[in-house]
Design a protein around this nucleic acid. Sequence first.
DNA 1: TAAGATACGTCAGCCATGTTGACATTCCAA
DNA 2: TTGGAATGTCAACATGGCTGACGTATCTTA
Lengths: 172, 172
Amino acid sequence: MAERPGPQGGHGLLYLTDEQLRKGIEAMFFAYRGFTAAPDRILAEQDYGRAHHRALHFIGRSPGTTVGNLLDILGVTKQSLNRVLRRLMDDGLVEARVGREDRRERHLHLTETGRTLERALSEAQRDRMRAAYRAAGPQAVQGFRQVLEAMMDPEMRRHFEGGDAPGKAGSR
Amino acid sequence: MAERPGPQGGHGLLYLTDEQLRKGIEAMFFAYRGFTAAPDRILAEQDYGRAHHRALHFIGRSPGTTVGNLLDILGVTKQSLNRVLRRLMDDGLVEARVGREDRRERHLHLTETGRTLERALSEAQRDRMRAAYRAAGPQAVQGFRQVLEAMMDPEMRRHFEGGDAPGKAGSR
DNA sequence: TAAGATACGTCAGCCATGTTGACATTCCAA
DNA sequence: TTGGAATGTCAACATGGCTGACGTATCTTA
């Protein structure tokens, strides 16, 4: 009963051999490297690391987000995040504004400089993603997204689904 | 979320908005966290890290692999890898045998203890992967794999494709 | 056979980024 | 008015990357 199912078949049951799963695991490993390679190069030039990239990304995608929210998303300690944010603020890439409703909160924004770097990073990463999407085709992209979503921790899925376009429903 | 081109359609052009690509990027980020979460917990108990996991994994999947080959796959420096291997060998999880053809080479193998830990780690990870695969369905799995493969660096794809079942048709 | 290249190990030190723990400040809310 | 929340910060430590330098054994080649 083992090897039968062609890669297509198996509509009902899924025959997931350890071997198939191992390939999936390695695919994640190797792909993640490709996924981070381009931004990593840009970051290295400016002496930043992935931690800075992550902060820039999530501030860029939801301007005005708070430190606490960022801590939640990134899943690191505040001390760790603070070191990164401090540097970004000292370098003038990120700005923290005191909350108007709750003055304890700091709302984070990218400065023009910050936006520029963020754009460079995400463009590099999008290029790679776009190339992969194009190579694999729309059908595959759909499946890709489904599997990734199923692989997330449920709390993370929240942040993911919540991460809708800041402007409107109509994307673009 | 679905816009114009039905998820099926768009054979020719792919309309990939920045927004869609951003979601893909975040999906990778969040999913990768889910992907490593379970093994990370096991590793933490024994005071190992992801680096040890990677070494155990690739030694386990191709017993007898050499240090140089591992360096190639992992893309770290020999000093970095050595620190990890040293510990694994001292702890009796990995064994290095002098090459028979080329006595300069060290061929790496898991000991029984090493195999046990490796199995625990990969089982935890496979469980997660299996659950995601099941939730998403076979079609999606196919797409997932295609996109990931397209996202790898070409040299890494080599290692990936080469990673065939150790038992089967004389790969390698 | 001698010289160079290759595979590996190791020492030493640096850096980024994660961690804990403790403590201060400010401010909201009951 | 007081307790807790949101944040910042100091200090210390661990992991796992990195570079550079050097040593040894072994293979390859002129």
